[in-house]
Design a binder for these strands. Structure first.
Length: 298
DNA sequence: CAGGCAATAT
DNA sequence: AATATTGCCT
């Protein structure tokens, strides 16, 4: 039973989440202040190679852990501090939330780079997710590697792979809950095979170099959790990223179809049963976390 | 300096 | 719990 590495990705396409599930990852979901915190402009590209936390005019994120701070509602945080505006530099980025989609992107990048080239910086570049830092990737990569190691031992007995549907992956090491994020994405076969320099992938993806030069293209935006967001968060409905023809292309092609993409048209489709993904994690003591997507199925 | 990895912090 | 950060090597 070896599907050949030339097929592993074919199945992916069938397992790809429905358009509705993939769309939500875009800047539109980032609220204005969130965007500010990242210094994300709607028409500017700037990401990787990030010098120190910028210095321009961001200050939305307040400062430090404060317990009772909420005041501004996601709309009025600008230039408020007329006086003590502390240096926006040294601003802490909010925690990155690794949504299944984001992770998928990560896995795709690693898969295409090959284990040897899959180092944080390269992965980060290939992913082209704005707001993503090398540290983010490094940290995630570390965890992912541990996950893979655990998997190798159990893949023989469990074989949860091959899933049939987005659900899959419920069992792995006994604590599915521990790595359900990782389980949400199929793991390319070669990842589990040490000592097998596979290079059969022939995916038509473009070289990394191109990634840094596109002029216009809304990349995927990193989902982020605000240290303490006001409880009311509303998610804009503009769905971008949905291919005009309703068909999804290869992940890597998808981002490269630069001039072909026309986002002016309201492609957003009403997704039934789509709930706000605002999750209140009171297990943490009232800490709010903004999650972008449904965790699949729970 | 970038990477990997374990430990630790938040 | 999920990420981030740090320390210590390579």
């Amino acid at each position: 039973m070896r599907e050949d590495d030339s097929n592993w990705f074919s199945r992916w396409e069938e397992e790809l989440p429905s358009p509705e599930e993939l769309t939500p990852l875009s800047q539109t979901l980032i609220t204005p202040d969130l965007a500010l915190a990242f210094d994300i402009r709607n028409s500017h590209h700037q990401q990787q190679s990030q010098p120190p936390p910028q210095s321009g005019g961001l200050q939305s994120t307040p400062s430090q852990p404060n317990s009772g701070e909420f005041a501004a509602d996601s709309a009025e945080l600008e230039s408020g501090s007329g006086a003590g505006d502390e240096p926006a530099r040294t601003l802490k980025r909010p925690r990155l939330v690794w949504t299944p989609q984001l992770h998928k992107r990560f896995v795709d990048a690693v898969a295409h780079l090959g284990i040897k080239n899959a180092v944080p910086k390269t992965i980060m570049q290939l992913m082209s997710v704005d707001g993503l830092t090398r540290e983010n990737v490094a940290s995630h990569l570390q965890k992912y590697r541990l996950y893979l190691k655990r998997m190798q031992g159990l893949s023989a007995s469990g074989g949860n792979n091959g899933g049939g549907g987005g659900g899959a992956a419920g069992l792995a090491s006994g604590d599915p809950a521990t790595d359900r994020l990782f389980a949400s994405s199929p793991v390319p076969a070669h990842f589990l095979h040490p000592g097998r320099p596979n290079s059969d992938h022939f995916l038509p993806f473009v070289p990394v170099a191109a990634v840094q030069h596109h002029h216009h293209q809304q990349h995927m935006a990193a989902a982020v959790a605000h240290p303490q967001l006001p409880a009311q968060y509303h998610r804009p409905m503009g769905h971008f990223g949905s291919p005009p023809n309703g068909q999804f292309e290869h992940p890597f092609l998808a981002r490269q179809t630069q001039s072909v993409h026309r986002m002016g048209a309201p492609v957003h489709s009403q997704v039934p049963g789509y709930m706000e993904d605002l999750e209140l994690d009171n297990a943490n003591g009232g800490r709010k976390v903004l999650t972008l997507f449904p965790t699949g199925a729970d």
